[in-house]
């Protein structure tokens, strides 16, 4: 059946093209929003070590987290499949993970702000694969990025002279 074969070929192709355009547009939007939010919160103290400002006292302490679960789209998986043939950088996966990490950090910062903290110290990032562990292609391959740190509320030290 030539028409049946054509349809069988056309559906994945359409999915591929559709996923490419939607995926690219979503990615562009996400990057734009990330840049804006990162710029807006750049003065919010966020460090990856247990920093305690010498002139300020921590008055409130609590852990904060932010997480994102992402998956790879149809087109990216296809691209990566091609890439596997020759090896090298898989740019399409790189941007996905980059976006997810930055988003997780933003969420952590947002939670800290919402809870009234003025800084997040000792930030850690973790990456884990949460689905399709059996290795077959069925099921959804998803990756969780978790950002966590200790939110602190700092208050300028009353200098007792």
């Amino acid at each position: 059946m030539p028409t049946e074969a054509l349809i069988q070929l056309l559906i994945p192709l359409l999915l591929l093209v559709g996923a490419y355009f939607i995926g690219t547009e979503l990615e562009r939007r996400h990057y734009r929003s990330l840049r804006a939010r990162e710029h807006a919160s750049r003065r919010f103290l966020t460090v990856t070590f247990p920093y305690e400002p010498p002139d300020q006292d921590p008055v409130d302490v609590m852990m904060v987290t932010g997480s994102v679960v992402v998956s790879v789209d149809y087109f990216k998986r296809f691209l990566a499949g091609l890439r596997m043939l020759v090896g090298g950088r898989v740019t399409s996966y790189e941007t996905l993970l980059d976006r997810a990490r930055r988003e997780a950090i933003m969420r952590m910062k947002d939670e800290a702000k919402r809870k009234g903290f003025t800084a997040v110290i000792n930030v850690r990032l973790e990456t884990s694969r949460i689905a399709s562990s059996s290795g077959n292609n069925k099921g959804t391959a998803a990756i969780e990025i978790l950002a966590f740190g200790t939110g602190v509320k700092l208050r300028p030290r009353a200098t007792a002279a």
Binding site: G18, G23, V68, D73, A100
Partner: peptide, 14 residues
């Protein structure tokens, strides 16, 4: 998973 990006349902679940 066809378009990619965040899986909100999973994020909430976790």
């Amino acid at each position: 998973n066809i378009v990619g990006g965040e899986l909100k349902g999973y994020t909430e679940l976790l």
